[in-house]
Write a protein that binds this DNA or RNA. Sequence first.
DNA 1: GTTACAATTGATCATGCGTTCAACTATAAT
DNA 2: ATTATAGTTGAACGCATGATCAATTGTAAC
Lengths: 119, 119
Amino acid sequence: MKKTNVETCQVTVVDHRKVGRVNERLPGNRHITDLAETFKVLSDPTRLRIVLALSMEELCVCDLATVVKLSISAVSHQLRLLKGRKLVVFRKQGKQVYYRLDDDHVIDLIHAAASHVRE
Amino acid sequence: MKKTNVETCQVTVVDHRKVGRVNERLPGNRHITDLAETFKVLSDPTRLRIVLALSMEELCVCDLATVVKLSISAVSHQLRLLKGRKLVVFRKQGKQVYYRLDDDHVIDLIHAAASHVRE
DNA sequence: GTTACAATTGATCATGCGTTCAACTATAAT
DNA sequence: ATTATAGTTGAACGCATGATCAATTGTAAC
């Protein structure tokens, strides 16, 4: 009579002391998802171009659409996500809406990523 | 006879000097997509947990599966992506495969994101 | 008011992506 | 060689997501 333990494979060699130590120090779910969301908003080429453009000068939606070669609607949708994650802020002037980066943390983040890419 | 310029709206108020300046300084497509890919690989909670776990100690796939509470298969798939982006490296020992972070840039990147999140 | 236009918003569609499942590979022990 | 197990791989499924289109809002000019 052979032992048909189908499930044990998942647990046999687990080093529970290691796992325990790691689990203790892992950040909570809230923090993890916040971090993931921040990375996700920068994980799209279009949004990245928008952020890089705004790191140089303040630009209106129309200018941004020209820079990234997409419709104003598409750009507006992406700007909504960037606003949601507090990466950009805006200022209305007449019919135009001018966007700029919220702070310099964003550029630091991109620089950090850039230094990982070249290597 | 009214001028039916449907397309002009996209171009009328564009500040071409601004757009020109910005376009000149924007990184090339290759660099942008490389950056975006780096952010994307960190934009998933599971992968982020894996990376954070590996920033503490070297762990085998089995341990990682226990930590993130997912199947070994799921973890293996994510590790493949992390390997592809050079975030982790591995070492085989007997039947086990131990993973660790490739370098410390990765942690710096996560710290940079974390400092943007709390604010 | 009416017209013109910058920008936002919601719906739709196609594509991308994370997990699961099943099949397979590799290593170790008997 | 056979058995057991750690890990990988490919297919499939369902959900998320980015671009487009149409409709709408808000502001300025007439």
